[in-house]
Amino acid sequence: MAGVSVRDATLDDVALLRAWDEEAHVIAADPNDDWQWEEELQRQPDWREMWIAEVDGRPVGFLQIIDPAREDSHYWGDCEPDLRAIDIWIGPADALGKGYGTRMMRLAIDHCFATPEVRAILIDPLARNARARRFYERLGFAFVEERTFGEDRCAVYQLDRRTWEGR
């Protein structure tokens, strides 16, 4: 099985990310967000990382890791320090169901917990997205609450460091 690697997303990825934004499965998972790629990929705040996941040099997905207590839109509201939040998706439809998402998440989780202060990771799939919820639960994320972010009803999940390290 091919390995997944990640690299920083750059302005050169705008067309790719915009194309992925038009994929039916991406729209279904994130129907109401405009990521404003041209602007966001030029910013490099110290509280965020944006990655492109690749398999054998082929881009297959996107990952964003943020510090929700420090991120400037306050999407997560008031958050305690020492947390991270992850956004993830597979871009091309033909890359779905191949295990890439699992490997991407493991890379992201290990990266988050490589910082000793980070005690937990948050994720917020749509509440109605049963497949995504099962995916996160298999990784050890525990359901916290349903919450509305903007126009979207989401299921907030949290993965504690002890749970990840004890798997």
Rank of each mutant, 00 (worst) to 15 (best):
I123D: 04
E80P: 11
F62Y: 15
A24F: 09
G97D: 01
W47V: 03
V144P: 08
D124V: 08
H25Q: 12
R138C: 11
D152V: 01
L83C: 04
D124M: 10
Q42N: 12
V55M: 04
S73M: 12
L126E: 09
D72E: 15
I121T: 04
Q64V: 03
E145H: 09
A9H: 07
D72C: 08
R133V: 01
E145C: 14
E71C: 02
D13V: 01
E137V: 09
R70Y: 07
R84D: 03
E54W: 02
E22F: 06
L126S: 09
Q42M: 10
Q64F: 02
F141Q: 05
G140A: 07
W51Q: 03
R106F: 12
F149P: 02
D67I: 06
H74Q: 15
E22R: 10
Y157R: 05
A15V: 12
A127S: 14
R138A: 11
R18E: 15
L96S: 00
L126R: 15
P68Q: 05
I90G: 03
R84C: 13
A29K: 02
R70K: 14
A108D: 00
P59G: 00
G97V: 10
P31N: 03
A142S: 12
D110K: 10
I52S: 11
D34L: 13
F135K: 05
K98E: 13
A15P: 04
R43P: 00
D160E: 12
P116I: 06
A85E: 06
D46I: 00
C79Y: 02
D72W: 08
D160H: 15
R70N: 12
D13F: 01
Q64A: 02
R162P: 08
R43K: 15
L41V: 05
A85C: 09
D13M: 05
G140W: 08
R58C: 08
I86C: 01
V14L: 01
G140K: 03
E151Y: 11
T102A: 11
I121L: 11
V156Y: 07
R147C: 07
A127E: 12
F113K: 00
D21H: 04
E117D: 13
D160N: 13
G140Y: 06
W47H: 12
I88C: 05
E40N: 14
I66A: 06
Y157H: 15
G166V: 03
L11G: 14
A132D: 03
P45L: 02
A130L: 15
A95L: 04
A9Q: 06
L16F: 08
A69L: 09
F141H: 08
I65A: 06
P31A: 02
F135M: 09
T148A: 09
R84I: 09
T148P: 05
A127M: 10
A69C: 13
D87P: 00
A85D: 09
L16K: 11
M1L: 09
D82V: 10
P92Y: 03
R70T: 11
Q64H: 01
R133S: 07
R153M: 12
L63N: 05
D82S: 13
R103G: 08
E80Y: 07
F135I: 10
K98W: 02
I86L: 07
L96W: 00
A2F: 07
R167C: 04
T115V: 13
G150T: 04
E146T: 14
A155W: 00
V60F: 03
H25L: 02
W76E: 09
R153D: 14
W20H: 04
